[in-house]
Amino acid sequence: MNSSLKASIIDAHQRRDRLHPYEVLPWLTAALIFFLFPQFLNLGAHVLVTIIFVLSMDLLIGYAGIVTLGHAAFYGAGAYAAGILCVSAGINEPFTGLAVGTIVGGVVGILSGLMILRTRGLALLILSLALLLLLQEAANQASAWTGGADGLSGMSMAPLFGKYRFGLDGKVIYLYSLGVLFVCWLFLRMLLATPFGRSVVGIRENAVRMAAIGANVRRRELAIFTIAAAMAGLAGALAAQIDQFVSLNMLSFELSGMVLVILALGGVSRLYGAFLGTPVFFIAQDYLSKDNPVYWNFWLGLLLVAIVLFARGGVLGILARGFGRMRLQPAASSALSQARS
């Protein structure tokens, strides 16, 4: 095998980590919405925040293969952290709130991860659910801080960069959320291409194999769990800020379930599944639950069952199967087929 063929194989192998032109699409769409549909900016900001939350769950479920029911625990923890910081401590600078939410999410993540990740399968599912319900009950009881069942209101955020107020037109919160999402995406895009990111995917595929080449599986899982938790905390803090409200629903099983559904809809472990699944979910919900929310639940359930039985990988999975043949770089694939014949 000559060296140029080798080089093209290596290139084809490394290609996944490089940016592709189509990756500009989500950002282009976001920009178009900002200029063309100003009436949707409030809704749009919520979609963007949810994408961050879904991304953090994809990191955990899709890339690391750790299936939990309790991911909303970190989202809620981040939301309450940002909310309490603002209402009780009077610190209402947005970026400080985001930082605190991220740290609180990460700390709750590492502490619970130390316990939860010792287990697998059903025990892990239930431990994660128990953690979520535990936090929800704690938030419910600590009403002096959290507002209990009434929710935490009275958050009034300081202007962004000391200049831009969170207005009713949604412009500021939209751009704010978009900026945070962009940073998160950049971070994930980079992280998943690092040796650490690839080793986490390796652990998902076969933890025994990764241990057999010397990886400390437990420690890497704890690391990715903490990162995912911190990102969920960030999303929660952002959600609290743009809503200027935190409720117990942010610590609910239903929310964990909703994010799982979005992920399944868009496509698991594809990064862009979150970008596609979230708007589809919001639009479908809006459209289908207009007449009667019952129908929405019914169709959503049916869709989930159908995805599992017939369309694993969600929308992006279907697309990928369609375009699957186009993956190899032409040079490498033709050279390889020559080498084979």
């Binding site: 299936v67 599912l125 559904v261 639940n297 359930g301 989930l304 995805i307 599992v308 039985l309």
Partner: peptide, 17 residues
């Protein structure tokens, strides 16, 4: 595991509705 979880959550939604 993920498929099982998604599938059964789907059934819960259908049943509830």
């Amino acid at each position: 595991e993920l498929d099982q979880v998604l599938f059964s959550i789907g059934l819960i939604f259908i049943g509830t509705a």
